[in-house]
Design a protein around this nucleic acid. Structure first.
Lengths: 212, 212
DNA sequence: GTCTATATAGGGATAGAC
DNA sequence: GTCTATCCCTATATAGAC
């Protein structure tokens, strides 16, 4: 798009930047490290991106775009509610497992990092609403048990993200990329969703113990 | 220990530093901001802490100590397995809700931030093993359903942390400190654990916990 | 489009008076 | 124990040749 003789240097910069931004955060990432890893000089970065913040935003945009695409694709498939819910979880696990650095960046962004600006928060809310709406619709149609929809969706997002970003530090080798851990995690996440959505009998008795 | 006329400046520094380290991370936190918030000069910080890294470690140590204490206290209580599991979740939710900044710091630390050093990772593993062991023991005694113990514990840790650190950004006012959101989140987390540990069976604990 | 300088600023840390 | 003043280093960003 930008020209004819493009080797993809810009893309390589984005990829390298993603790993560093994930591991060290925006303020902890040094441009000279990125340049060194890519194999160019630090000053050359400014030919592709106006500033460090600009590079950061580009990484965020790319990541968010792919995430949104994946979620929408699964959501629009013509499958049964519970099947779609499980497919959503599996696709999300695959995505996070494939891009742990990106996930770290998203989490850091939500913590308050970032060089200001960044108005994609609204898009994020719309995407979340889409998923929550899907759950709520399923409950209205009696396909799902009456669990707090928003809390459930946030639970899955948070737990899966935690598996691939924080857990490996506490439990070495837990979410290793190629190992069987991915299958294990996927299995667990699906199990949790199923148990939360298919209770069968509405547990109204749960109110009794809320006294504690 | 240090003297008689101590007003607690050190403690105030630690408290202020915790909020900044949580919101901006280690590299994003500026010492002059901390000093300004405390009401002293930047250079005065070095009277209490040898370096920025030293201050960071002090914050981490304090946070980890309180966390460990809380978990052990609940774990050593003489209560039934399922009651104890729920109590553990509730105590954890209260703790994270009371210290969101500390939670952010822990998460950032696990991402790879931090000024190196910090060998408390081993203690963290032991604490985690304690909780996982409690679940596994309960399963061996047929008190819990056969769910992946490690995955379950990590799930709760990740989901609750996400609720109070990331979710508020995506869903404004979700985990507001004083609001009813804390009760809502606690209810949800307990529900998830119950459904994962009781395999659909109605919990037979309703009476026991009211006494507490 | 990539390079070699270099400008500019900001932040951690120290020295030493009070 | 707190201050003012300052050192020193590093990191972003720019200028301009090739």
């Amino acid at each position: 798009m930008t020209g004819a003789g493009e080797h993809g240097t810009r893309e390589r910069i984005l990829a390298v930047a993603e790993t560093f931004l994930g591991d060290f955060g925006y303020h902890g990432t040094r441009l000279h490290q990125i340049a060194q890893q890519v194999g160019i000089q630090k000053a050359s970065l400014f030919h592709y991106f106006a500033s460090k913040a600009d590079l950061y935003h580009a990484v965020i945009e790319e990541g968010f775009g792919e995430t949104e695409q994946t979620v929408r694709r699964v959501l629009e498939a013509p499958t049964a509610p519970l099947v779609k819910a499980c497919a959503l979880v599996e696709a999300y696990v695959d995505m996070v497992a494939a891009h742990p650095a990106r996930t770290k960046i998203f989490l850091r962004q939500s913590f308050g990092d970032a060089p200001a600006g960044f108005e994609r928060a609204l898009d994020l809310q719309r995407l979340l609403s889409l998923v929550v709406g899907f759950i709520a619709d399923g409950q209205a149609a009696r396909a799902f048990a009456p669990v707090d929809p928003l809390a459930l969706v946030l639970s899955i997002i948070g737990m899966v993200a935690f598996f691939f970003t924080s857990a490996p530090v506490v439990v070495p080798g837990f979410a290793e990329p190629g190992s069987a851990s991915v299958a294990r995690i996927k299995q667990h996440a699906v199990t949790v969703v199923q148990r939360c959505l298919t209770d069968g009998e509405p547990p109204k008795l749960a109110a009794a113990e809320a006294a504690a």
